[in-house]
Design a protein around this nucleic acid. Structure first.
Lengths: 196, 196
DNA sequence: ACCAAAAAAGAACGTTCGTGCTATATTTGC
DNA sequence: GCAAATATAGCACGAACGTTCTTTTTTGGT
């Protein structure tokens, strides 16, 4: 990798961390420059605009997300086991953001009413993510663990709700039992799906 | 009410709407001034600082929340019925923000890692809100609708998760079935609580 | 070791930010 | 209806914003 791409990557990593704390909009070029030890213009030269940078941050984060959350799940056996791995991988992923929590979660409520290409990119990512949860849930159906007539999209909806709330409970409320509550919620969704 | 308090209130109402779209931090005094047709300094004279304004916005929103969500629920018969009223009132409340959705939901992920008095105020509000859900859930226990050993805080956790996710589904993803999904999720949480 | 190419810095731009201060309107109590 | 109190506007500030230049430094191939 050339020097240029190396710094560009380092910038994106740093930017992801900053954006997860102050938001994609709240993050400023100057802030980012001092965090990376670069000049504003030197840093800016790697991107066309702040908006382009925001989109690149999302892309960068998605790549990490795929390798740290999705891949391990897909290597797990089909069915509830895979669903469980996916959920636990997400919890680990969320905790990995030292502060600020999952960038996607932050971006979701930040951009939910800010039309534009950044929001569009995020919506695509979230749609993919929800569809993946549905798909993995469907493996539990085809493995015979869930009844045929279970609504996989509804399960995905409810599982996604838990991940959102985990951020709320662990980051904002600092509830020491947040992890435990998330896992119990997961279990009861699975339980109910089993005997629908 | 004096002229001063009248405009102050009008400012807060407008500010709540703006902040629900762009966030408490993203909102600026200038933006607010043009939305209210006042000068920056004329508007600013009503508040000590932007931070004080943010706290006042939260207070203003909480008052409206109490009268539109909590009060109707407390006038409803104890038990599952009251829980149901509370949930539906919240859905209505959330939809009432013409754009931007519930200010609290937006503020929660915006401030979850921004220490300071604004965050502290929000955490207090959220704690109260969660405790209220727990308390109302407990009325279903004392009415004999839920078993004695049900974990009311866990139920509150899961119900809260649905409200958070409703914003995601309806605002960000623009899912036309968001309301339906939220209600089904509510029902299944209640169902499961009934036969624990 | 040199030299073109690439990367980073420097300096400046017009704008907007939050926040003061001072002056002018407007409301209120007598 | 006038004075006092209150509310609003005008103006200015230093700082930071995103962005665009030009100049300097660093890199990589020969």
């Amino acid at each position: 990798m050339s020097k240029g791409n190396e710094t560009r990557d380092a910038i994106l990593t740093q930017a992801t961390s900053v954006a997860s704390k102050v938001g994609l909009t709240g993050m400023t070029i100057g802030q980012l420059a001092s965090h990376t030890g670069m000049s504003k213009s030197g840093l800016y030269a790697h991107f066309e605009s702040k908006e382009a940078l925001q989109i690149e941050i999302l892309r960068h984060t998605r790549e990490r997300f795929v390798e740290r959350v999705i891949r391990p799940a897909l290597q797990s056996p089909r069915g509830v086991s895979r669903l469980h791995t996916l959920f636990e991988a997400w919890l680990t992923w969320s905790d990995a953001f030292e502060e600020g929590g999952c960038l996607f979660v932050a971006a979701c409520s930040e951009l939910d009413d800010q039309p534009g290409p950044v929001r569009d990119a995020l919506v695509r990512d979230e749609r993919d993510w929800l569809e993946l949860i549905s798909t993995v849930t469907a493996t539990a159906v085809s493995e015979g663990e869930f009844p045929e007539d279970v609504d996989v999209d509804q399960i995905a909806y409810e599982l996604h709700a838990i991940t959102l709330n985990h951020q709320h409970a662990s980051r904002l409320m600092q509830d020491p039992r947040a992890l435990e509550r998330a896992r119990r919620a997961f279990d009861s969704i699975i339980d109910r799906a089993r005997k629908t």
